[in-house]
């Protein structure tokens, strides 16, 4: 009858004994100085720093491939010669849709022949205008297929500035490299440059949360039953 009890008692006594020995050893080590403990800390720090470097520096480099635009476009030069700012080339159509990057025909209006001495213009005229081939521009702000974005609402109705979302691209003399996420195929401008997700300018990132944040602040609409924010079928299609 009393055997099981005895056994458990015996076991607990044994483990207790081991614990005591272990803790005694620990005390011993500390007394003997920083020896193996110091190594462990050092290895931890080295490993920690290494994984931080891999995660924050090397991985983003590997994740994004860099592509150059087919023609290096000078925005400053063009903005100086047109009268209607961005909308001179990035036009709205009469049905309220937005044309985005101009088509070749629009550029060819002026660039039937080489006008200046820029080598980039020469490439453009010879390779594209002469051959009547559309330029395969890489669009930095291209959103996934499930996104409905209306330029008309933001620019015509809300009177927003292009800079708010696109940054001072009109002040650039050359086009930056297009960084493409190797996994998703989306532009880096969607996720943003900073891996930490810290945003300094309104145009640093173009993720759903960034749209939602501004919508909450500016429209204050609460038409969604699920989220009590702006409805899903506003920016989705």
């Amino acid at each position: 009858m009393s055997t099981p009890d005895d056994k458990t008692k015996g076991v607990s006594a044994e483990t207790g004994g081991e614990e005591a020995v272990a803790s005694f050893k620990g005390v011993d080590e500390k007394e003997q100085g920083e020896g193996p403990g110091g190594f462990i800390v050092l290895f931890f720090i080295i490993g920690f720093v290494a994984s931080l470097i891999i995660g924050w520096v090397i991985f983003p480099k590997l994740l994004y491939s860099q592509k150059r635009q087919p023609v290096d476009f000078n925005h400053v030069l063009h903005v100086e010669t047109v009268d209607n700012g961005c909308e001179s080339c990035h036009i709205f159509r009469e049905d309220g849709s937005y044309a985005g990057v101009p088509k070749l025909a629009q550029c060819a209006d002026c660039h039937q022949e080489v006008q200046g001495d820029s080598p980039q213009e020469k490439i453009f005229v010879e390779e594209y205008v002469a051959k009547e081939k559309e330029v395969p521009w890489l669009v930095y702000s291209k959103q996934p297929d499930c996104v409905f974005f209306s330029h008309t609402v933001h620019v015509k109705l809300a009177g927003m500035d292009c800079v708010t979302c696109h940054g001072p691209i009109g002040e650039s003399t050359s086009l930056k490299p297009y960084e493409e996420n190797r996994l998703t195929g989306y532009s880096r401008d969607i996720w943003g440059k900073s891996m930490t997700g810290i945003k300094k300018n309104s145009w640093d990132r173009m993720k759903m949360d960034d749209c939602a944040e501004c919508h909450e602040k500016e429209t204050g609409r609460k038409s969604s039953v699920q989220t009590d924010k702006d409805a899903c079928f506003v920016c989705h299609k």
Partner: peptide, 25 residues
């Protein structure tokens, strides 16, 4: 449907009365 969706993938828009379905969600 809106009441049971655990992913907020389907939603009711109070401004239009339309029940949306967000496929990516």
């Amino acid at each position: 449907c809106v009441s049971v969706c655990p992913a907020t993938a389907t939603d009711y828009n109070k401004e239009t009365g339309i029940v949306s379905q967000i496929y990516t969600r």
